[in-house]
Design a protein around this nucleic acid. Structure first.
Lengths: 338, 338
DNA sequence: TTGTATGCGTTATCAC
DNA sequence: GTGATAACGCATACAA
């Protein structure tokens, strides 16, 4: 069934049906009513595909995510989905790896579907391909992780370096001096910058960087668990652990209890992200908040401005959100007398 | 840029371009090569929207979810997204409430976009609207929660009642006799059936159903926390809690530690779902597994069979997956002498 | 205020 | 093997 059927029933032309569908003002009231009745009678709903073809816009956006089952992504995706509804956009989510080949494939299928814009939740910092899109003017924005090397990049992210320094300074305030750091892959700007924050905080305090208490590898629960457990078994184990994600902090907490440590009396742990489970009182993880909601909402709004061509040149395309230290129950004063 | 540009460059007609795009066999090798070269030179990628209009299929499916940030949904969505890629389907995710009005709205926009099929993660058991779709033959399937009242319904779900009984029997084996039950809204088949399992397990043992130790309300962390904490403060508090979701079990664990109880020595807690965090050794929640992966994969496969019209009449459209009891560290023998 | 005709970028049916 | 040409279901410029 098409608009022609409606037209026939309402005794008008298909163009008139189209006009009432699009609220074109100059349609006689009575014919508008006839058309509406015909639509209802037939249960007609316009074919958005055909509409998109004629319009050259699909009212759908793409969201490329690394792993939607991971808390940070699912929580921000939730916000984006709900928010997009308000603007009448649907969203196609692509869940794929971040290597350049996978990324290109995701972009191709999204562009094939002619989405109006794309949000990328997880780029690698050296992704060259996305830069071409930034410069092409196609509506696209990344959040959480950013890319380097383009003057036209668009992203919204927390101040990762500052956030890391906040966490470190807080641990220093609690009299911790030997602080282990658990980093994710440095191919991501988030980890790169948090790592810099860790080092700079150390430097500011005059402490030396100790490679042996720094983990820098893939985000694997088991690997982080083992690394932490090993450290904890040393006589002069670190008194505090700073994890670059909450997920990893969970693994460290596990290692702590496995090693017989009591949090936060024997050991302090702080994370980064503030995923939902962190605020669970049973976990009560101290962490650095990314302000997920703000981040997700701004990414979407900025994208829509681009789509509508309303983004002002004066507006910055690089939005940096303030990090926020959140102290809960996994951090405490250092009781280890050394 | 369109296939016409490619055609011009390759000195063929647009139809021939279409033929090589679709791997139509009877195209001369040399012209096929010329077309491929032209495509590459122009960086052409076919407009899937136009293709969909001509084809009457979009190669995209819809997924209606209640809250993608909730573990169970994000974890199953992850599986569905990854799996759909293999079949060359994209997926539009709609995150919305489950009341009939919201549901109808979600369906309308999905049908407007002409998706090839729809997966519904969270229907209410009395949803009448979805029944019309089951009976219309439009490819649609629900997972996790089902609907009652249609002979043509299609779903894949765990055996919720049996799962609940497994949990209860396990607690009975651990010498628990007074077991509180935390239920979600009975408008969902999952909670309805788990509730029945709870009662039937009680009945089988000859224990009486005690309304005062049963929570039956919305899924709210705070409400469950308070309810549990109140119970625990009684002199003859339940020695075990059975939560109808892992999320709620987390709230109960919180209440337990708040009330000074040690899990599992003073109190046992068991959940339902087996979300990822449950297996975190720091949490170590005993639970009933829904076999998420199996469930998600089957829902998608069944849907695709429907789309391709290959679903055999002999096949059952009601797939019930076995529940699996998973014992971890939140359950133990009852030490309370009564 | 409304109808006619054309285009959007494909696929598919015919001819040649 | 390949090229016209008519759909697909709408939006829209142009006429009337």
């Amino acid at each position: 069934m098409s608009a022609y059927d409606v037209a026939k029933l309402a005794k008008v032309s298909q163009s008139t049906v189209s006009r009432v569908l699009n609220n074109y003002p100059y349609v006689k009231k009575t014919t508008r009513k006839r058309v509406h009745e015909a639509i209802k009678e037939l249960g007609f709903s316009p074919n958005e595909i055909a509409r998109s073809l004629a319009n050259k816009k699909t009212n759908t956006i793409g969201l490329i995510v690394e792993d939607i089952s991971s808390s940070f992504y699912s929580e921000t995706a939730h916000i984006i989905l709900r928010e997009a509804q308000k603007y009448d956009y649907e969203v196609i989510i692509i869940d794929s790896e971040t290597d350049e080949e996978s990324f290109n494939k995701s972009m191709s299928t999204l562009l094939g579907k002619r989405v109006d814009g794309i949000i990328v939740a997880s780029v690698r910092k050296d992704n060259k391909n996305i830069i071409d899109f930034f410069e092409s003017g196609f509506p696209i924005i990344s959040y959480n992780r950013r890319t380097y090397g383009s003057d036209n990049d668009k992203f919204v992210a927390v101040d990762n370096k500052k956030g890391a320094m906040q966490a470190m300074d807080y641990l220093f305030d609690l009299k911790h001096e030997k602080i282990a750091y658990i980093s994710g892959p440095l191919v991501y700007s988030t980890f790169q910058e948090r790592y810099e924050g860790y080092k700079e905080a150390l430097w500011n305090k005059g402490f030396e960087y100790d490679d042996s208490i720094v983990y820098q590898d893939v985000l694997s629960y088991d690997k982080v668990f083992n690394f932490s457990l090993n450290l904890m078994r040393n006589v002069d184990a670190p008194t505090a652990f700073f994890a670059s994600t909450d997920q990893m902090a969970l693994a460290i907490m596990d290692a702590a209890s496995r090693s017989g440590r009591h949090i936060p009396y024997d050991i302090s742990i702080i994370g980064f992200d503030d995923i939902d489970i962190a605020s669970n009182p049973y976990i009560g993880l101290s962490t650095v908040s990314q302000q997920k909601r703000k981040m997700a909402v701004m990414a979407l709004e900025k994208l829509i401005l681009q789509i509508k061509g309303e983004d002002q040149k004066e507006d910055s395309n690089r939005i940096i959100i303030d990090s926020k230290l959140i102290t809960r129950k996994t951090t405490g004063i250092n009781n280890i007398t050394s």
